[in-house]
């Protein structure tokens, strides 16, 4: 959804500046300390890519392609290396973007209520992200209803309630321990009767290894379909930008239960480099929709692969 496109791009640059400092000044250093391109530089680049959580396979692939391209170009200037590497990295990201069915505001008006299910492991940042999404959709002029299907974690209700107030949207909650599916059922019914544009469903954090919790997720999905046949319209997997290779397993395991339509990568305002983005694009082909760059309600950014890479290189 292109809802956040109106956001000033400078904000993304700011948010990513620390990431950029680490990742690409690193690359520039690696390059500028050597006048002539050699294998050592590519080794250093490999180190930089791997320490960004890009993962060994993807890093190797990018380096391999960069190396091949450089030999072909026969140009080993710093500029050539950077632009070649940039292109290779872009190729990896665009690979997944092309798979995106680019839903837009028409989808929201024709699929009422437009239901977004948010899932992820514990501590990834689901609830905070829901708060930010609600705020942005509301600001974009949509009516939003949040369903609090995390009936497990202590005070999850209270936390989401505060976010709902901040975003100035309605919320449906039940007591701790209630069946999450029943919350979903009630939320969608209310949304239908009130002609709500967008429904956001927050779920309890669950490790993908917990089969009973994954079954619960399946049930939530089934119940959704019963109330609103086209639901869920989106299923977002929220992943912690600090995470390493396990994210790939998460994406794979959650995909088994429900098709994932997008990823939201959080906590990219630290020094973690979010290389996980490349990894997922290369292997899972699930597009990255948004990135979280802070704890404030406006700290959610539309993910744009080209701009993302450009911002990294600026």
């Amino acid at each position: 959804m292109a809802i956040l496109k109106n956001i000033n791009f400078n904000k993304l640059k700011q948010g990513l500046s620390k990431t950029k400092d680490k990742l690409f000044t690193g690359i520039t250093e690696a390059i500028s300390t050597k006048a002539v391109f050699d294998e050592d530089i590519l080794d250093e680049l490999e180190e930089i890519l791997i320490t960004s959580d890009i993962g060994m396979d993807t890093a190797m692939k990018i380096i391999h392609n960069t190396r091949a391209e450089l030999y072909y170009l026969n140009d080993r200037s710093k500029e050539a290396i950077i632009s070649t590497l940039k292109n290779e990295m872009k190729t990896v990201l665009l690979n997944a973007i092309q798979n995106t069915d680019n839903s837009d505001s028409t989808d929201i008006s024709t699929n009422k209520p437009y239901v977004i299910l948010v899932v992820g492991v514990n501590g990834a940042g689901k609830t905070t992200t829901i708060g930010k999404l609600a705020y942005n959709y509301k600001k974009a002029g949509y009516s939003v209803l949040i369903g609090s299907a995390d009936t497990f974690r202590a005070a999850a209700n209270e936390q989401l309630d505060i976010w709902a107030k901040r975003a100035d949207v309605e919320i449906v909650q039940k007591e701790t321990g209630a069946d999450p599916s029943s919350v979903v059922y009630e939320t969608l019914n209310i949304a239908k009767s009130e002609n709500t544009d967008i429904v956001l469903i927050d779920t309890a954090g669950r490790l993908h290894t917990k089969s009973n919790l994954m079954k619960e997720l399946e049930k939530i999905k089934t119940v959704m379909g019963k109330v609103v046949p086209h639901a869920p319209n989106e299923v977002y997997l929220v992943v912690d930008g600090n995470s390493g290779q396990n994210v790939l397993v998460q994406a794979r395991e959650f995909s088994k239960v429900t098709e994932l339509t997008g990823l939201i990568v959080t906590k990219l305002d630290g020094t973690a480099k979010g290389g996980v983005v490349f990894q997922i694009s290369a292997q899972q082909k699930i597009p990255i929709k948004y990135i979280g760059v802070g704890e404030k309600i406006e700290d959610l950014q539309d993910f744009d692969a080209s701009k993302f890479i450009e911002a990294l290189f600026d």
Partner: peptide, 12 residues
């Protein structure tokens, strides 16, 4: 520290 942490764990 989250056992799922990646490369940046050493920095934090």
């Amino acid at each position: 520290v989250d056992s799922m942490s990646g490369q940046d764990a050493v920095n934090s």
